[in-house]
Amino acid sequence: MFDSPVSASAYEVLGVTADVDDEELRRAYRLRLRQTHPDTGGDAAVFVQVQRAWELIGTPDARASYDRGRGAQAPEWSAPRASAPRADTRPRARTHGQPGGWRRERYLTLVREWVGRGVDLPDPYDPQLVRSAPHELRRMLADALAEEATARIVADLGMGYTVWHDVDASRDGDPEDKLDHIVLGPSGLYAVLSEDFGGPIGFRRGEIVGAHVAGAPVTELVSRQRVIARAAGVRFSGAIVVLPDGDVLGAVTDLGKVRGVPVAVVSQSGLSTLLRQGVTGARDIGGTELFDIRTRLQQRVRHV
């Protein structure tokens, strides 16, 4: 993934600077292919990323186009705007809360503090500004974008689904302890985490690992899910972590049960199918039980 606030550039993936000549660029690409090829012990996800980087800058025309776009405005980073009327008039999922809202607000506060008081900041989402910001700020914006992307997907699931965004799951009022989304539908009740670590990830003993993965995101997700389950008196069917398509191999990876909860990691493009089919080992929900769970959650849920 090369369009994220925290992702490496195509040049960084290939291990060169942006002013490298074409021959050296070609040598770097071949070296990175050997280093990352799965047959020689490399990481398959990184291998795919190297190939994608070469597609972006491997020819003079592609490289020129990429270089022109690197400093261009990226509208998808800006604050979400009201969408135009949809041609599709089918009922959408019931949604509550503002996806990515808390992280958007936090990013705006932090970026203004970082720039400094009295400094004019006409566009806090300017790509050059974002790229130069500390990693903590870029991660904040990247996660907001990830949450918004998930929200767009689940909204199209249809009227059989209800979704709550930015749900307070704290014990002491810390807004960081939140569930990005809760999704309720015929396939089950799921706690959903939307993440963007800025690059390929791996798995170890039921947890997500990677160069930029801090803490234990799966364990933390399950813990926050339990807070809501106890408070609302409901039983979750499973937990789901959503990642950008380029950062995970395969549409769905089942991690098995983590603290008794079935967990799956899914790419954004595979999320809709997973929520319709359900996570492996999860319990379906239907009839009056679905109505009862929705009522309990609606009474309990508080947004950050």
Rank of each mutant, 00 (worst) to 15 (best):
I208V: 15
G287R: 13
S267P: 00
F197K: 04
G198T: 10
G210M: 04
T253H: 14
G250A: 10
Y190N: 05
V241W: 03
G202M: 09
G188Y: 11
S187N: 09
G210H: 06
D292R: 15
T280G: 05
T280Q: 14
V261D: 01
V279F: 05
I228Q: 11
V222R: 01
V242S: 11
S272I: 00
P217C: 09
A211V: 11
I240F: 02
V241P: 07
V227R: 12
A191P: 06
R235L: 11
V192S: 02
A216S: 13
G260S: 11
D247I: 00
I285V: 15
G246A: 15
L290R: 15
V265K: 02
E207G: 04
P262W: 07
R235F: 00
E207Y: 00
E220R: 15
V279N: 02
D292C: 00
A214W: 01
K257C: 03
A231W: 01
G256F: 10
L290N: 07
S237M: 06
G199L: 04
I285K: 04
G281W: 06
A282G: 13
A229H: 11
V242L: 07
G250S: 10
I228T: 09
L243I: 14
D247R: 03
I201A: 03
E289H: 13
R226F: 08
G185Y: 05
V252L: 07
S237H: 06
G188H: 12
G250C: 10
A229V: 08
D247T: 14
Q277V: 01
V213F: 08
V252M: 06
Q225N: 08
A216Y: 08
G238T: 04
L249Y: 02
V258S: 06
S237R: 08
D245C: 12
K257G: 00
V252Q: 06
A282C: 10
T219K: 07
G185A: 09
E289C: 02
S194F: 06
R283I: 02
G215R: 05
V222T: 05
V252E: 12
R230C: 02
Q277C: 00
F236E: 03
S237N: 04
T253R: 15
F236V: 08
A264M: 09
